[in-house]
Design a protein around this nucleic acid. Structure first.
Lengths: 238, 238
DNA sequence: GCATATTTGTCCGTATGTATA
DNA sequence: CTATACATACGGACAAATATG
């Protein structure tokens, strides 16, 4: 059981295999590794050994390599030639870039609030209410998840599958950053009411104000992260 | 030599192998297939046989499968379980979605014209001038390439690597659509002067007007494509 | 700086399951 | 329904690159 590989990873794989899901082994392995990386179970910089993980998961190296390639493609892993696959160590520049992209996507999506279908708008508010309930119960990791759902729902106002997927990937990367930061309560609490305000504006269809609120929101969040997250941009190598 | 596989595909592969490029075989195969799909050498709907292509390229099926997975991930191929890899047949819905995404990205990027570095703005104008020269010489396929470079340069105004890559992939998909359309002269000629106007606005730093010009440009182009491109959204199967 | 061990990159053979003629 | 073709997945092999002592 080499590095963060748990028993239920393997059983999950086996369960899905017997299930009626129409996906290849490589796809299931990808999904499994993706969530494990996103949940921070492999610390940034960890090398993902083909031999060890393949054996722990009970899949061949060839199959595992297909999964690794996909993870690299969505930036949840980095490939260093002849050295292996590593969990990425994101830099301050990465944080800035992700927020730049988020402002572009989420800002533009919020502006569409007035023309977006009401179901999509209500989904935004639903995620905020879910977060409020979780916060009231003190479940702050759930608040974090709901916050990401909120932003996903905002992007979904575009009604564009490609935008949805793009947003999903950007937020997956962002999770990597969250894991090396302070506890979720300190970070997310202040944004709860701002989420609520934005959600209400979106339901009302006031795209202009929703956008400007969201942009200042994202700018503040970026500043706050960069103040704590001091990973230099120079090539990180152990 | 089964399906669209030419001799120089193999020689390109061999040349790069001996070269000092630091990339794996799978990466080189991916790049090779990517450009060949983008250039329309495989008609939409074609099945990419592991056996045939692997043999033609002189690479093993394992290596080829890694490449196929990547292409599927960037939507330049579609994977049908237990059936194989196919060149995608894009639907009208895909066209609409790609243009929705483009309006979001390119519109937001154009708005940043005033704060973008001058080198990035001049790159936009350079692509237009290149297209104008190609048009004057009657090289319309070159005009098409320059047009795509123009839009890539607009997205690059954000200065975001992730946005650049995202845009590259969206435009790669768009190429698939262009190939089944009328000749490039008819389609691109009317947009030449509009490109010029937008580029000048960007160099001047007038993000507001650049954005609105670009948005109406994209709306017109989408309409024009959809008028000709009548592929129904229902699951295309031969 | 060198020799060794480890790990990746790539290929091959093969067994099994799935789709199609 | 059978047969064929093909994708899926595994395991083994070897060279090359890298890490380790």
């Amino acid at each position: 059981m080499p590095a963060g590989i748990t028993e239920d990873m393997v059983s999950t794989l086996a369960r899905d295999r017997s299930g009626l899901v129409h996906a290849s082994t490589a796809d299931r392995v990808t999904e499994l590794l993706r969530t494990h990386i996103m949940e921070g179970l492999f610390p940034p910089g960890t090398r993902l050994s083909e031999e060890a993980i393949g054996q722990a998961l009970g899949v061949s190296r060839n199959t595992l390599r297909e999964a690794f390639r996909l993870l690299c493609h969505e930036r949840l892993a980095v490939h260093e030639m002849n050295r292996g696959i590593f969990v990425p160590v994101l830099t301050s520049a990465d944080v800035a870039d992700i927020y730049k992209l988020r402002r572009l996507i989420e800002g533009g999506a919020a502006r569409l609030a007035g023309v977006a279908p009401m179901t999509a708008r209500l989904a935004v508010r639903a995620s905020v209410e879910s977060a409020e309930n979780a916060a009231a119960a003190g479940r702050w990791f759930e608040v974090r998840t709901d916050d990401l759902r909120f932003h996903q729902a905002v992007a979904a106002l575009t009604g564009s599958p490609r935008t949805d997927e793009l947003m999903r990937r950007a937020l997956a990367e962002l999770r990597l950053i969250f894991h090396v930061m302070a506890d979720p309560e300190e970070f997310h609490a202040p944004y709860l009411e701002r989420n609520r305000i934005i959600a209400d504006l979106i339901v009302l269809g006031d795209g202009q104000r929703a956008e400007s609120e969201l942009l200042s929101y994202l700018a503040d969040a970026e500043r706050q992260i960069l103040a704590v997250y001091q990973v230099p941009a120079l090539d990180s190598r152990s």
